[in-house]
Simulated assay, not measured.
Amino acid sequence: MLEVLLLMAAAFAAGVLNAMAGGGSFLTFPALVFTGIAPITANATSAVAVSPGYLGSALGFQAELARLPRRLLVQEGLICALGGLLGAAALLVTPAKLFSTVVPWLLLFATGLFAIAPRLLARRQNSATHPLARQLGLLVVAIYGGYFNGGLGILLMALYTLSGERDLHTANALKNLNSLVLSLLSVMAFAWAGAIAWPQALLMMLAATIGGFFGARLARKLPTTVVRSVVILTGVVMAGVFFGRG
Rank of each mutant, 00 (worst) to 15 (best):
T35H: 01
Q62M: 12
V103W: 02
Y147R: 03
S127V: 10
G83H: 08
N172Y: 05
A173K: 10
L65W: 09
T111K: 07
V4D: 12
G56V: 12
G153S: 12
L78F: 05
L159C: 05
G23D: 07
S46R: 01
F34H: 08
I37T: 14
I154K: 00
F61R: 14
L59P: 10
Q75S: 13
P223R: 05
P30Q: 10
N172V: 05
G215Y: 04
M238A: 15
I79L: 14
G77K: 05
V231P: 03
S186P: 07
I196F: 06
E64I: 03
L68V: 06
K175P: 06
S183F: 05
V50W: 06
G150K: 00
F114M: 14
L68S: 10
S186K: 06
V33M: 13
N172M: 09
G164Y: 07
K175I: 05
S100N: 10
Q75V: 11
R245W: 11
G244F: 11
G84Q: 09
G87F: 01
R220D: 13
G235A: 02
L206C: 13
A13E: 01
H130A: 14
S100R: 09
V227L: 10
L98I: 08
N18R: 02
R134E: 11
A239V: 04
L222N: 00
S163R: 01
Q135R: 15
T94M: 13
R67D: 13
V230S: 00
A207N: 09
N126P: 04
L106G: 05
S25F: 05
V33Q: 09
F242M: 15
V140A: 15
F114N: 08
M20V: 15
A10Y: 01
I210R: 00
L206D: 02
A19P: 11
L78Q: 04
G87D: 06
Q62C: 02
L168D: 08
N176Y: 04
S183H: 09
L180N: 07
L168H: 12
F12I: 00
A189I: 01
L27A: 05
K175A: 07
L168G: 03
T41A: 15
A201L: 07
Y54P: 00
A81R: 08
V4E: 11
A219F: 06
L73T: 11
M157P: 07
L139M: 10
I79Y: 03
F242I: 01
L162V: 02
G77F: 04
A191G: 12
Y160I: 03
A173I: 03
V231E: 07
P95V: 02
F190C: 02
V4C: 00
P104D: 04
L5H: 01
A193C: 02
R217M: 10
G146D: 06
P30T: 03
A11M: 03
A10E: 02
G23S: 09
M20N: 03
L203H: 10
A13R: 00
V181M: 08
L152I: 13
